[in-house]
Design a protein around this nucleic acid. Structure first.
Lengths: 208, 208
DNA sequence: ACACTGACTGACCGGCCGGTCAATTAGGAC
DNA sequence: GTCCTAATTGACCGGCCGGTCAGTCAGTGT
């Protein structure tokens, strides 16, 4: 009965943040009530207001915490990569896919944000994509990838193919013939990497 | 002043449906109130209850109307296609992309539904994908597409690449170096179609 | 002319919403 | 030990929420 009465504002804050993360990810901002948040985090409603001001304040804090975790992780991986070689893009896709696979809540959170036209993290987001696009351009200049496609689009395409997969997976699990996460990733990589091979443009010159 | 007093339940119903479509697409189910819906559709709150029962009832009706429009359109296009030829998949992607481009609200509606784990249209959805996958398989058997990828995944990939593009476009419009709708589509088609070409698998046998 | 059905209205309901506030209390600074 | 800051509480607020209901009224079948 000693630790129950002890005050620990940092722990309290993080408990509220965690409850907010779970509930907002699950139901979206509008469908969550302060009372629900209070109950889940085991504190009083007033205490949430004390620490975060308003419901929007907590929402912002939840988004920022989640996104900064995402941002740091992705940036480390992007900057830690070596000089361009033929497997760099492939490995980047795989790492991104694995990250989403292990953090499905992040996908949902970002989707809620997109629907609400939230631009909280647009600068960081843009920075990550620019970093990835630069890598692709380097590989293009080294002759490792076809040069007739926009590097930003290359990054965008694989981000979309990965994130949408996890966004809609619950609904599409019983589509006829659909495979596991790994099988989807494998097929995507086949098409994506071969479609980006330097010689890929040659095979189609007769059709149009 | 004569037509204002005339009753027309069908028109009323469709006006409520239209208002519901607009508001739900814009803000999501939870963030829309019955009073808002009544004001937008120019009728009384009670009248919405009279026609649709509850707020959920209206939401269901909105979803069903939107999805059945989508379903009919897509099915017509899929069944109207000719025998497999080398441009069939390419044209299918273009048509799907154009449809989303002209109906951005549908993308948002489906995204809200996915986040809410709504399975209202999962059977019809699965049917469309199965139809598309069958087309891909035919093309594979005719030697027009590489045969070492799951046809359902092929369809899934392009659906994801197209729908996610329109889902996040508002936020990503100012990404460094990102192009227009058409430029994105063009680059995606280059990578996608070349990656699916029958000879694509050959170029990579040495790397792994 | 009359009755019946259902479209339509406005007043009303209990309850939950996000937010406020005064009061209590624990913990750290000195 | 005292004081001050801030964490924490519970009672309370006005307002909006989804939904109901009795009643009015327009159109229709006979």
């Amino acid at each position: 009965m000693n630790e129950a009465t002890t005050r620990d504002p940092d722990l309290t804050r993080s408990r509220i943040l965690q409850a907010g993360f779970e509930l907002f990810v699950d139901k979206g901002f509008a469908a969550v009530s302060m009372r629900e948040l209070a109950q889940r985090s085991g504190v009083t409603k007033s205490l949430i207001h004390h620490h975060f001001g308003t419901k929007e304040g907590l929402w912002d804090a939840v988004k920022e915490a989640a996104f900064s975790r995402y941002y740091e992780g992705q940036k480390d991986e992007l900057e830690g990569a070596d000089a361009p070689d033929s497997n760099l893009l492939r490995n980047g896709v795989i790492r991104y896919f694995r990250f989403l696979q292990e953090n499905p809540q992040v996908v949902r959170l970002f989707t809620w944000m997109h629907l609400e036209n939230d631009s909280t993290c647009s600068e960081m987001d843009a920075e990550l994509v620019a970093l990835g696009a630069r890598r692709v351009r380097e590989a293009q200049e080294a002759g490792l990838l076809r040069a007739d496609v926009n590097p930003t689009h290359v990054v965008t395409i694989f981000i979309h193919a990965c994130s949408q997969w996890f966004e809609v997976r619950p609904q599409h699990k019983n589509w006829e013939g659909i495979g596991s996460d790994d099988e989807y990733l494998e097929d995507f990589l086949k098409i994506f990497m071969d479609g980006l091979a330097p010689g890929a443009a040659a095979s189609e010159t007769d059709s149009n």
